[in-house]
Amino acid sequence: MEEELISLDRLTPGSSGVVVAVQGEARERFVDLGLVEGTTVEVARQGDPTLYRLRGYFLALRRSDACRVLVKEVGNERNDYRSSGW
């Protein structure tokens, strides 16, 4: 089955994605904030800026910036801390 990649801003509320790639000029900033390959990101509050939960903390990003992060959607269950690295 083909894996579908979407940009972070298109992740639906309550669902999670695993970071696959980060592009653009703010790449270094994003990786420092913990948005590295393999990190699970969950949408905590829909809107613009969207509030994401990753690695045990909350990070707000504008959609126009979040679209530079590519994720693989992993479904709607709440993640246990092991996979999200809380």
Partner: peptide, 8 residues
């Protein structure tokens, strides 16, 4: 304009 990011 720099990237907008905010830790809550």
């Amino acid at each position: 304009s720099p990237v907008f990011f905010l830790e809550l």
